[in-house]
Simulated scan of single mutants.
Amino acid sequence: MPSLDDDHTGTRIREQRRLARLTQRGLAARIPYSYSLLNQVECGARPATSTFVAAVAHALGIDVTVLTGQPYVTELQRDRLAELVRPIREALDLYDLGVNPDLVARPATELVTAADHLCAEVRATHIRNAARSLPGTIAELTHTAWSAPSTELWQALASTYRTAHDITVKLGYYDLSAVALDRMAWAAERASDPCLGAVRQYMRALVYFREGEYTIGQRLVASGHGIVGQAEPTREVLAVTGQLHLGASVICARAEDQAGVDRHIKEARDISKRTGDASDVHWLSFGPANVALHRMSAAVEMGQYDDALTQARKIRLPASLATSRRAHFLIDRARTEMETGLTDKALEHLVEARKAAPEQTRYHPGARETIRGLVHMARRTPDTLNHMASWVGL
């Protein structure tokens, strides 16, 4: 068995609990989990699920990243990804300077295509490629949108800010992702695009979902419905509406609201029957397959692992599904299999997630916790698991 480091989510929970002058029983009384589970997580005998971490962070009044240790700077530096973050930060900061007289930008049509290509790169989990190209594209679009404003250019600029959010979330820079969403709102207002505004509210809701603020998340989803409801019921509007329902379903799952989960999944399923595969709409991956994936994710979030595994075995992922969504499913499935004692299968699906989306998997806190859990459960650690644990920095 490999010697795991002592800097893990459990030890960070213990440290923050002590700083708050709470005993284990005192903290357990503030979260919907037992003292026994808290004790096991703190000593590293059980993985800390995202739901558990969010509950502890909420109870202690701290950010989730304080407990997960994100961003994983050591691994990011080794992968030469950390150096790509500062240019993104600077590009987000210079949004209001107007025309740049020293910049020669590509034609507007090329910039619109470039913004769309960045979305495609992130969905294909080519995070490094997207991160390298993003700051320059933001600078060119900012310059061009100020010098010759048009709806299409403001939409493209909003899209690049959305890509900045996606990249920084995947790399664990949640503070920067919030700035990106503010910039997205700024550009979406200038584009007068209700769908972009609603997508931004959906993404903000997921921020609060990660932090355990489920009531705020639901309010943001409701705001998104209000924004998109002002537009004509086109296929684009329907897809965005359906995705809002999917976001609400996992928020309800975290809040242990089964009726809410069922209601939102039904709404999304009914909409998906009208739209079919609408993964082309704002790169949301909305469609029947994503409805099935969210239904399974809701079961995982509620700890209904037997049900989640039954669903996972029935899911057939379409070839058109984005690699980022496929990898997320594999990580969820691996966690479910670990929780139901199918450790070999769990490792198999983590390896598959790594092959499909190495950068996304390496920096996914759920993948790291599942790997740690598998190591603790193993009587004899196979080489593959040793390699995975080393690869994610455990």
Rank of each mutant, 00 (worst) to 15 (best):
G276Y: 02
A253S: 05
S279F: 03
G260K: 10
V291S: 08
A259S: 12
G260D: 05
G242L: 07
A268Q: 07
Y214S: 12
R269N: 10
E232C: 04
T241F: 07
D280E: 14
G212N: 09
D280P: 00
V221L: 12
R269C: 11
A259R: 15
R274Q: 15
A278R: 00
N290G: 03
H225W: 00
G242C: 04
A292I: 10
D262A: 13
L246R: 13
S285C: 11
L284F: 06
V250C: 05
I265M: 03
L238Q: 14
G229I: 01
R235P: 10
V221R: 03
D257C: 07
V228W: 03
D262G: 06
A222K: 05
V240L: 09
S249T: 03
A222R: 03
L220I: 10
K266W: 06
L246M: 05
V228D: 01
V291I: 06
T241C: 11
S272Y: 07
S279Y: 12
F286K: 02
R210I: 05
D277P: 08
E213Q: 13
E267C: 06
R274A: 15
S223A: 15
Q258C: 10
F209W: 12
A222L: 02
V250F: 10
G276D: 08
G247D: 01
E256L: 15
S285K: 05
I216M: 15
Q218A: 07
